[in-house]
Design a binder for these strands. Structure first.
Length: 757
DNA sequence: CCACATAATCTTTTT
DNA sequence: GATTATGTGG
């Protein structure tokens, strides 16, 4: 972090929040009233400014803690900010409104839910539920779900919500675009269903807030009195709805402080509008703008490379980052023949840095463009026994966790039809598609939630006796659990539910390699619940806090997407897979044209600026993507890097990737044309000769023996590769023929012996 | 109604 | 390649 050696000495009685700041930082911290925009480049002490400013506001008495709203994008950022402020001002921090846009909006909405037609205990849906719901709506309208993927329709609706558009406003704007012109209609019906379900999706949290503030001025006035100062982090990532929300909240006080970096705007695909930032000074004419340009993180070479790269973007406010740090090592660019050799080289480098230069593993990171690209590295790390951690595998999105949560949701909120449909026949209890359809129709006809309709149905002869019996059992279970809600601790209730519903048994009977892991996850869920007051509190947490246990436990190489890396920093950063089409992503360029390319470039900039000391960028001439070999050419971003900050090495016989010949001048500037790039058709064509390998039977359960004396022929289990037989041994490395994954070399500590049956 | 086998679909990025 | 939707036989 920031070194303070070359800063002017502070007076002895300077409070902590004014210590060790450079001139622009200090100016921003001491600014109290009116609109302020802080343009904060990568590694220039953005969080520090935010937290110190907050502390200063309180200590000078300009604002009471409960008058301050501090908004972030991620829960992690909110937590970090709160912790750092707490260190300066102590327990007063509890009174400050910290949170993500979504969490704060949810908090406000719970208080006034009735005003927008919801009940205070509304459910917040996850993406999975949203998809199922929109699909139902589409099917009800006899729209071909094959031709119009629900994902697309949902994406469209989300973009509308990001823009703050309710269905009535959309119909004028661009109703005719998608789904045979019925887009706006579907949107309206989808919203109607959400109200009936007493549910919200993510976009609604903000959208309902806007409706609330616009329709009930007295409620807004109330918040104006409560909140006099608003601070926003990562302002470049705000969408229109969030912009409007903030505008409404500060329209009286005009005490708005936004911090961000237009060069790090990487969420355009999610509706973020850099324009919010670019036009700040226009919208708030009296606004002050402060630039933070002194970088305290990276060496000169790293910063130089990043600055030149980002200078290729046209639309930016423009900052000139500088550092007093030494030049350090040059950026290394490496070319490889294929992905395997690239991954291998990265792993080797990590091992050697760790062994010979004492670089801690957790200060090194591999940052990739897309999630699936981590796999190749995982494979090598496993083989070489390098401990690693993948950030982004989200705990709460796993199937078993969602199922368990659906049970709980239905108990807390009987109108939650989506939860009902999800678990009414999971585990299988003789309530198939036909029965469910019958219940759904009855519910729709009577205007009741499905659970209530099902209950009514038990006393007539709509259903065949067998189905009725099974349904009765299910309904009675739910009723019993609800009765216990008030009387037994919620952690105990979950265990009861998972047990009595037969859900645990279902996984115990399952004989796939990951069944055991799923049971572990369920136990973890119970543990996680322990730290919450009650069930509703926990459910609120999981719907808003999708980042699970992504703690830096230490001693592990970090493996994550570039998006996930924003805001983090590492001594050594690896940026692999820099090939045209992969990075910059062809799809982004197809969809968003030149602005998409600029966003990709910002992503590259974010990647490079994560590094403190050393950076390795690489590309491969060919790699296997989804089972097919594809050749690639080096990313145009490589050619944009300045030679004076680079060292380039390629595998024997390869051409340079950073040479700046005609190559990239010929590269067409993408236009926002529809359809896929040229590689797509080829891919489809070659797909035809695929064959499905026969599924190898998986043997029974495994047990941990703790022994490492394996013999050739032993049957072993591996967390990732499943079961296999040992076919060779050298030291602690075993060569194993896996049933599914083929032959792999694996460190003995990563496998468990399977008891022969 | 369930279990299994085959076919289709999809691969950014996420609060 | 891997997961998920659909179809078929019991």
């Amino acid at each position: 972090m920031q070194t303070e050696s070359f800063l002017p000495k502070d007076a002895p009685d300077t409070p902590p929040w004014l210590q060790g700041l450079n001139a622009p930082q200090k100016k921003a911290v001491e600014h109290c009233d009116g609109p302020l925009l802080v343009l904060s480049g990568a590694g220039t002490g953005k969080t520090r400014v935010l937290t110190c400013r907050l502390a200063n506001l309180i200590s000078t008495g300009k604002a009471k803690p409960w008058n301050i709203l501090a908004v972030t994008f991620t829960n992690k950022a909110a937590r970090e900010m709160k912790d750092r402020v707490a260190n300066m001002i102590g327990p007063m921090v509890e009174q400050v409104w910290f949170g993500t846009f979504h969490a704060l909006a949810a908090r406000i909405l719970r208080r006034h839910a009735e005003a927008v037609g919801l009940k205070a205990n509304f459910t917040i849906l996850d993406t999975d539920d949203q998809l199922r719901l929109i699909k139902q709506v589409m099917e009800a309208n006899h729209i071909d779900v094959k031709r119009n993927p629900p994902r697309m329709v949902l994406a469209m609706i989300s973009r509308w919500k990001d823009k703050g558009l309710t269905p009535d406003k959309v119909s004028l704007a661009d109703a005719s675009n998608l789904v045979e012109g019925s887009g706006a209609d579907l949107y309206a019906q989808y919203q109607q269903r959400l109200l009936e379900l007493n549910a919200c999706d993510f976009g609604d949290l903000l959208l309902h807030n806007l409706t609330l503030f616009n329709q009930y001025p007295d409620i807004l006035t109330d918040y104006h009195q409560r909140i006099t100062h608003v601070m926003v982090d990562e302002y470049q990532d705000t969408n229109v709805a969030q912009y409007l929300w903030i505008s409404l909240l500060v329209q009286k006080s005009r005490n708005l402080c936004c911090v961000g970096d237009d060069d790090q705007s990487i969420y355009g695909w999610r509706g973020a509008e850099v324009a919010n930032m670019l036009r700040f000074a226009e919208i708030y004419s009296e606004a002050e703008t402060i630039r933070l340009e002194e970088n305290y993180r990276s060496t000169g070479h790293i910063l130089g490379a990043a600055s030149v790269l980002i200078s290729h973007n046209e639309t930016r406010l423009g900052k000139t980052l500088y550092t007093d740090d030494q030049h350090g090592e040059k950026v290394r660019v490496n070319g490889f023949w294929d992905g395997a050799s690239e991954a291998r080289a990265v792993a080797d480098r990590i091992e050697s840095l760790a062994r010979h230069e004492n670089v801690p593993l957790d200060s090194m990171a591999v940052l990739v463009r897309a999630g699936y690209q981590t796999r190749e590295f995982e494979d090598v790390f496993i083989r070489l026994g390098i401990p690693y951690r993948v950030i982004g595998a989200k705990f709460y999105e796993r199937q078993e966790i969602r199922d368990a949560i659906a049970y709980l949701r239905l108990i807390v909120q009987p109108a939650d039809d989506l939860a009902f449909e999800r678990i009414v026949n999971t585990p299988a209890r003789g309530l198939g598609a036909k029965t469910i359809a019958t219940i759904r129709n009855a519910a729709r006809q009577q205007g009741l939630p499905m659970l209530a309709a099902a209950e009514n149905m038990l006393s007539d002869t709509t259903l065949k006796p067998a189905a009725r019996k099974h349904l009765a059992e299910f309904v009675n279970m739910v009723i019993t659990w609800r009765g216990q809600l008030e009387h037994i601790p919620h952690t105990e209730l979950v265990m009861t539910v998972l047990d009595e519903s037969g859900y645990t048994t279902m996984w115990q009977k399952e004989k796939t390699p990951d069944a055991e892991g799923r049971l572990e996850n369920l136990k973890e869920l119970v543990t996680a619940m322990d730290s919450f007051e009650d069930l509703p509190g926990f459910l609120e947490h999981i719907s808003l806090v999708m980042d699970g246990d992504n703690t830096n436990a230490g001693g592990e190489v970090m493996l994550m997407t570039l998006h996930a890396a924003k805001g983090l920093e590492f001594d050594v950063v690896f940026l692999p897979c820099w090939e045209e089409g992969a990075f910059p992503s062809q799809r982004t360029m197809d969809e968003k044209g030149a602005s998409g390319l600029e966003e990709e470039r910002r992503l590259a900039y974010v990647g490079i600026t994560r590094a403190r000391k050393q950076i390795f960028i690489s590309y491969a001439a060919s790699r296997r993507v989804h089972g097919l070999w594809q050749s690639g050419i080096p990313s145009r971003f490589l050619a944009e890097l300045p030679d004076e900050h680079l060292i380039e090495e390629t595998e024997h016989g390869m051409a340079s990737g950073t040479a700046k010949p005609v190559t990239f001048d010929h590269m067409p500037i993408p236009t926002a044309a529809s359809g896929y790039g040229p590689g797509w058709a080829r891919l489809q064509e070659r797909r035809q000769r695929g064959f499905t390998p026969s599924r190898a039977p998986v043997e029974g359960t495994s047990a941990l023996t703790g022994q490492s004396d394996y013999a050739i022929g032993d049957r072993v289990f591996h967390q990732k590769f499943g079961n296999g037989n040992v076919i060779a041994i050298e030291g602690d490395r075993l060569t194993i023929a896996f049933d599914k994954a083929g032959d792999k070399k694996v460190v003995a500590g990563f496998v468990e012996r399977v008891h022969k049956s």
